[in-house]
């Protein structure tokens, strides 16, 4: 007999695979951005080629999309559709419920990472991978899962949809994903360095360039990886 965690993880993956709109947002958009801006050279990428600058940022977008946005919207809609109340009286535990969503999202995110690596390589990206890269991906995902599931608990239905997308755009604009942080005013740069997306983008850039990255970015990413899931468990309610 399969455990509720296994049953729900399989179910979440199946649902995700046929949810075309969400797949377009979480998987299609990063691919589109990478291909478009690699070909159309309009971004200020410094001394790097467009694809070298873009791949780490687009990886961040992909992890944020499938880790944060998708989970927030799915949980928010499950709440407004009353599905949570049904799980509440089943053998599903909080850890099964949140864990299955995180596992399914992780599978989608990792598939995206592989696709984006392949695509980047095809567009001329030649990374120098640092062994810490998988750790960055895992920490970033765990933090994003936690924040997504938290948002899905505090905002239901259309509110979770609107807030998740608004935060997605805001985080991407501010986090050095599409332009360098040095372009921001000093005070704003100091603030955005504390965002999980900024830390993830910086460390993805570093670890695909053969270096480990700054201690501050690691501290920020690790802090969000602890804080996000803690918030998700704390805000979760079966009603």
């Amino acid at each position: 007999m399969s455990s509720p965690l296994t049953v729900l993880s399989r179910f979440e993956l199946r649902v995700a695979a046929r949810d075309a709109e969400q797949l377009l947002l979480t998987a299609g958009l990063p691919i589109l951005l990478l291909v478009f801006f690699s070909i159309v050279d309009v971004l200020p990428t410094g001394e790097q080629t467009a694809v070298e600058f873009l791949v780490p940022g687009v990886l961040t977008i992909a992890l944020l999309g499938s880790g944060f946005v998708r989970l927030a919207i799915a949980l928010g809609f499950d709440r407004s559709f009353g599905a949570i109340g049904r799980y509440a009286v089943s053998p599903v535990r909080v850890v099964d419920f949140l864990g299955s969503r995180a596992l399914a999202a992780a599978a989608i995110a990792l598939a995206q990472v592989l696709v984006l690596f392949g695509l980047g390589f095809a567009l001329g990206w030649r990374p120098s991978l640092h062994p810490a890269l998988p750790v960055v991906i895992v920490l970033a995902l765990v933090g994003f899962f936690g924040l997504g599931l938290t948002l899905g608990s505090v905002a239901e239905g259309l509110r979770s949809l609107a807030l998740a997308n608004a935060l997605y755009i805001l985080l991407l604009l501010l986090s050095g994903v599409v332009f360098e942080l040095g372009s921001l005013p000093g005070w704003l740069e100091a603030v955005v360095r504390l965002l999980p997306t900024t830390a993830a983008a910086e460390l993805l850039r570093a670890t695909t360039d053969g270096v480990v990255g700054s201690g501050l970015a690691w501290a920020v990413l690790a802090a969000w990886a602890v804080l996000g899931p803690a918030l998700a468990v704390r805000t979760f309610r079966w009603s």
Binding site: F77, F81, A83, G85, S90
Partner: peptide, 26 residues
Amino acid sequence: VMPQAGGLPMGLKVGECVALFADLYG
């Protein structure tokens, strides 16, 4: 349990709903 106001996951078909919960109960 049949709750008074229990919804189900968005987009699921009737057979899938019953199968999911049957599976959760083993």
